[in-house]
């Protein structure tokens, strides 16, 4: 099955950057009320907008977990604008047929989710939560637009 690629499974079994960040300057919780998935994103953002540290606490399915894990890998040391652009890139990859500018590996291994419409929100939830945290807000759900 395309959706459960080796990379995805590896990240879901051993998620990277998992846990709280005591010194977080920004954090947000994201919920998927339909399935109970929950992602908390913790960021340390310096005054010039660089993400100096990112962690997440995720309880959810393999797709949600690996998406959060890869996201945390990808955004370390990015600045605000680049991280935001990456969020949009991933979102486009997961939700639209027109192939936009792909986000590169390993994030591209999540692309298979698109064939499973009921699971797309599992993959987008961490990113939606990240955007929420970066905007200085604290709560989001998959039933509202980020």
């Amino acid at each position: 099955m395309q959706v459960y690629q080796k990379t995805v499974l590896e990240h879901s079994r051993k998620p990277h950057h998992f846990g709280q960040l005591a010194t977080a300057t920004h954090s947000a919780e994201g919920f998927n009320p339909l399935c109970g998935d929950k992602v908390t994103v913790y960021l340390n953002m310096s005054s010039n907008g660089t993400i100096s540290a990112a962690r997440h606490e995720t309880s959810g399915c393999a797709i949600c977990m690996s998406s959060a894990s890869m996201m945390a890998d990808a955004i370390q040391a990015l600045n605000f604008e680049t991280a935001k652009a990456l969020c949009l890139q991933v979102n486009t990859m997961l939700t639209s047929d027109s192939s936009g500018n792909p986000p590169g590996m390993p994030l591209q291994s999540l692309e298979g989710v698109r064939a499973f419409p009921s699971r797309v929100k599992c993959a987008t939830l961490p990113w939606q939560t990240l955007l929420t945290a970066m905007m200085g807000e604290t709560l989001t759900t998959t039933e509202q637009e980020a």
Binding site: V3, L34, C35, G36, C61, A62, I63
Partner: peptide
Amino acid sequence: IHPHDLGTVLDHQGVAIRTGHHCANPVM
């Protein structure tokens, strides 16, 4: 293993089952 991952893999093999809270959150 999360119920939704099971549901997707089962569906892929022709098995239709329900996953989730079954409209009974207090039970879950």
